[in-house]
Design a protein around this nucleic acid. Structure first.
Lengths: 200, 200
DNA sequence: AAAAACTGTATCCTATAGGAAACAGAGTTT
DNA sequence: AAACTCTGTTTCCTATAGGATACAGTTTTT
């Protein structure tokens, strides 16, 4: 080994709050059984860079992390959790039938489900859509995210941009981009009941 | 203004594939009605840095982006979408009753819903849980993410780590951390039917 | 309408991110 | 056991991230 006469430049232990980022990546890589070389090639980065990232010896760019998470099929939301907050880890929330949290609007009767878990990512609720005429429709509902709906009872028509009205009845389900303008109207004599799960 | 004799170093238009990252951040900041100064202070970064990020003139570190997304209450998964793939934007997927894609396991009869939309983030399916004795239970199901379940018919018992068995019947709902070991057994004479929505 | 207080952008500079290559250690092969 | 071939780590270097500051444009105050 050759003599190193230079002043030692210290850059150790960056990790501060970013915390277990490197560890997460190392686990994901090893779960795939990949070497630094292989993972680096898949993500388009050098193995030295990857080594430093996994050992928290650097503060990688977002771009690098994005490429890595793609290559390793990683679960990205976890990476954003700072030490302390850990989502709903190890918890569950039970709501008996009809015991959700009511929330009414002029058009809908909502029953929010599992509201004790405030940090959950999906938002489940049951809506009672009041029977009414199609002419009452006013404006699109539009909000970023994705939504899944399942018709519990009754009949309704789902209307949205880019598509023609879709008649639905009990047992039917639908998944859609909620940033696309959308809305529901009951087309049965009685109210229709729908289970919704909204993301974001 | 003084004469600039240096060779112009060009660093414009980094944006390459990272794409609309800066735009997303600008939108989130403006949605909060914040100036660069305010948002920067909330995230602990300088306004000049933030300006460059929003205009895609730099390739920010993951750490910076994490601080920003926290301060701005941003929805992080979107940021990981690269330019080509845009989720399910502007699309919807309808599945009539009983027309899901069947997928059976020894214990469950699954019917996957809305399988045409492959890039959706939530995974909805209906499971028929075969009536059986509690003694048949073998091992925990465990996978990262969150799950919501809604009992459509029949009765069952949900069992999981950290908790005691939970009897559920039609109309009940449950939200839980799916990394926590869990499982279901039917406790009614006939099979129980459950609607599940799984996230990641 | 000048002065002042804002806004977001552009410039300058230093610490460092990330690639190339050297290094070190553990198996393999000849 | 020496020569190869892997692994992951460390060193070296250049391009650049991000803060400080100067600049420019717009609105508010005196």
């Amino acid at each position: 080994m050759r003599e190193d006469t230079r002043k030692k430049i210290t850059t150790p232990e960056i990790a501060d709050d970013g915390a277990a980022l490197g560890q997460s990546i190392r686990e994901a890589r090893q779960a795939k059984g990949w070497t630094l070389e292989e993972a680096g090639r898949a993500a388009g980065i050098g193995r030295s860079t990857l080594s430093k990232i996994e050992n928290n010896l650097t503060r990688p760019s977002f771009d690098i992390i994005r490429r890595l998470t793609q290559a390793l099929d990683m679960h990205t939301p976890n990476l954003f959790l700072q030490s302390g907050q850990s989502g709903i880890s190890g918890r569950r929330d039970y709501t008996p039938k009809g015991r959700g949290e009511p929330k009414d609007t002029p058009t809908y009767l909502h029953e929010l489900l599992c509201t004790d878990l405030t940090s959950k990512r999906m938002l489940p609720y049951i809506s009672e859509i009041k029977a009414r005429d199609i002419s009452e429709f006013e404006t699109w509902i539009r909000h970023s995210g994705e939504e899944f709906m399942y018709v519990l009872s009754g009949e309704l028509t789902f209307i949205s941009e880019h598509y023609r009205p879709l008649p639905m009845k009990a047992g039917d389900s639908l998944y859609y981009d909620s940033s696309m303008g959308h809305g529901c109207i009951s087309t049965s004599a009685e109210n229709a009941r729908v289970l919704w799960v909204s993301l974001e």
